[in-house]
Amino acid sequence: MDTLNIDYMLGLLPVMLKYLPLTLKMASIGMIAALILASLLAVVRVLKVPVLNALTIVFISFFRGTPLLVQLFLFYYGLPQVMSFLTQIDGVTATILGLTLHFSAYMAESIRAAIVGVDRSQTEAALSIGMTNLQLMRRIVLPQAARVAAPTLMNYFVDMIKSTSLAFTLGVTELMGATQKEAASSFLYFESFIMVAIVYWVMVEGLSFVQRWMEKRLNRAYQR
């Protein structure tokens, strides 16, 4: 094996850090939007809201049943051809939209399972004191379901951070896109891609810390 160009690798770091905020921005906006959408979808499924329930089933089936890359291409290259108002959509927006819809479909199913897992008698207790379905969801069921679903949802967040790298296929210069450009001009592909791999890895590990802290907090109410 030839020697690694360590200096080049270290020199890449500042370049990468410059594009890190965009990656994090896409992932965090996508995550928050996906969480909100997934919660709504899950509640629709659990309460079996007429009409919406059927639409939700189709939505989840489509976004789980097709590759994220296909969905991104569809939003960015495809839809503007048939819907002219979408021509203004830029690569970043298309990525956030794609990540949101794609991951919300997965997360909706996790949240639904967690909701169903909350002790049914608490639902009855909430109804018995006169709460509406939405009140009992918001105040009693969702906070408890969040605790159950949290580890799975964090996994999806990790997955989402890594999936932002697909934005580069829409011409967005984010972490992966920037690395690709550097590699193409220096021809040091191994150095470039191992560095970007390390950056993603460190980011995900940092997140695991947050996850452990969060789970501890969410479990506070359940310690004897």
Partner: peptide, 12 residues
Amino acid sequence: AFVFQNYALFAN
């Protein structure tokens, strides 16, 4: 108001 056999307190 209702009092349940298994208490059914809000765990959170």
